[in-house]
Design a protein around this nucleic acid. Structure first.
Lengths: 195, 195
DNA sequence: GTCTATACTACGATAGAC
DNA sequence: GTCTATCGTAGTATAGAC
């Protein structure tokens, strides 16, 4: 079969992404990944060269770089921030595993931290610039640009840990459009934005 | 010496907290912990019984349970939320390692997740109740209680990852009181609070 | 491209000397 | 209370058969 090679390669990649996201990089063994993928242990070396390379390949394959570069063109602080909220909530929903991976790498000091910075800095630098511009234009009103960026990122990303808190929740889980609305409303108020 | 036993026990505990927080539970070996502590490998078994027990003992020793129980008495949604923000920022500042540990356990699915819930649920349940009460009293105005709790937690906790973003920052790092003020202001605006 | 078998290393844990 | 020495297990990685 023509796609047999890439099929198994992709299966391993998906299994690795799932298990890394669930239990962390170090808690996941190559054996586990291959069992999950239905592949032989030796194939990780054959396709990727090792466990670390599997990790990097996950980002090469699944990080939505194209969609994000579109965003770098935006100059409007209001539309820009709202667009990034929408995209983050969507990605968080479509590929929560990828977000988990990034979050774990950011929290711990790993040998892979520089790769992570390379990957995500352009986007957050752009968000920071939009916040700054918006404040200068009088659109937003807040203290501390760097702090505010951290707060905004926190409000967007921490939601992914909803699972952990689920046992104490009573409301129904909101659908994606509702969630985008709630997140946008929360952050816009927090930025001191008045329509 | 009288305190020789507890001294070494504490050294191991502190070394473990540091290394678990930096690199994660699985990436940290008992051997590394003991090297950092200047102790012999066998002492982990002797004092604690094993690696997992060291982890649990860290929380028994360092989780500020007393300070938090005071908080459970508070009934005022405004003072209560502001007090919890202040305490979280302070703890995040005084013992960032402990926060890292909790964050990592929340993100990944570990065999220790139930212990974590036991530890932190009372506090966040209380915050949730205060948010709910505040909204009913017309003090706050937001959509989605569960979502809002997640946003607030995110805004409070994600700041700890400042280190990762530092290379793109230009402002001076705010001192603790400034940071408490910024965090409180951000969250209060986000909750739709009007003085 | 996929398998088995195996090399080598590191892990957590403990028995037993001091 | 602290050490050395060692056990059993599980990790990553690869050589070589098919």
């Amino acid at each position: 079969m023509v796609h047999q090679e890439s099929d198994m390669k992709m299966k391993i990649l998906l299994a690795a992404k799932k298990l890394f996201a669930q239990h962390g990089y170090d808690a996941t063994s190559v054996r586990q990944i291959c069992e999950e993928a239905g592949a032989n242990v030796a194939l990780v070396s054959y396709y990727f060269g090792g466990k670390e390379s599997v990790f990097h390949e996950i980002f090469k394959q699944f990080f939505p770089a194209i969609k994000l570069t579109e965003f770098y063109e935006v100059e409007d602080p209001l539309a820009g921030i709202q667009q990034v909220i929408r995209e983050v909530v969507k990605i968080r929903n479509e590929d929560p595993q990828l977000i988990s991976l990034i979050q774990m790498e950011i929290i711990t000091i790993t040998p892979r931290v520089d790769k992570m910075r390379e990957l995500v800095f352009p986007l957050w630098k752009k968000v920071r610039d939009l916040l700054d511009k918006g404040r200068q234009e009088g659109l937003y009103e807040f203290e501390g640009l760097d702090s505010t960026l951290m707060f905004v990122l926190g409000a967007m990303f921490f939601y992914k840990q909803r699972e952990f808190f689920e046992p104490m929740f009573t409301e129904e889980r909101p659908d994606m459009e509702t969630l985008i609305g709630q997140t946008t409303a929360f952050i816009m108020r927090a930025l001191g934005y008045h329509k």
